[in-house]
């Protein structure tokens, strides 16, 4: 049984946040950046289970909320739920398959962005973009980009921690 320390996870999340707010715009394609924080919440959810997925998502969301100009707590809620969902899905799908992991990252990124749209619609009252337009213009490119970039990052993290899909990690 492997263990991944909480502090290590929080350090990785803090590093991802720093990259997200500074360097990541340099690899933006047509203004689209991958979402590293959601990707990491999905990763730790998949391999560490629903509880730790929720916890990782909450920490990632708290970090995002500190640097965003949005409703405080919205990222905590969305990323936490995404991590939780990743943990639940991790028990149902093979974590060893790179294709499955990539697909789950795409689906869960789309889920988190769609959830953001609906929550923001409730709190802001009105958003100047239809969900269809938002999905095609933002959600689709971001989830594809995040899924693609997750392939090498997940491989590296799996290699560093010696993770196997069939094992349990605490």
């Amino acid at each position: 049984m492997h263990t991944i320390g909480r502090l290590q996870i929080y350090f990785i999340l803090a590093l991802a946040l720093l990259l997200q707010v500074t360097v990541l715009r340099h690899i933006a394609i047509f203004g689209v950046r991958p979402d590293l924080l959601v990707m990491l919440a999905v990763f730790f959810g998949l391999f560490l289970g629903p509880g730790r997925g929720l916890e990782t998502g909450i920490v990632a969301g708290a970090l995002a909320d500190l640097f965003a100009l949005d409703f405080f707590g919205i990222h905590i809620f969305i990323f936490g739920l995404t991590g939780l969902l990743a943990g639940i899905l991790g028990t149902k799908f093979s974590r060893d398959s790179a294709r499955t992991r990539c697909l789950l990252v795409a689906v869960l990124t789309a889920f988190s962005m769609a959830l953001h749209f609906f929550i923001a619609s409730i709190f802001s009252g009105w958003i100047g973009l239809s969900f269809g337009g938002y999905f095609l213009g933002s959600v689709f490119p971001v989830c594809i980009y995040t899924a693609l970039i997750s392939i090498p990052i997940f491989f590296k993290l799996i290699e560093i921690y010696g993770l196997r899909g069939s094992e349990e990690y605490l």
Partner: peptide, 14 residues
């Protein structure tokens, strides 16, 4: 400009 919004939803700068 030293930073940007971490999310893909909002658009803000630091």
């Amino acid at each position: 400009v030293i930073g940007r919004d971490p999310s893909n939803w909002s658009n803000s700068l630091i």
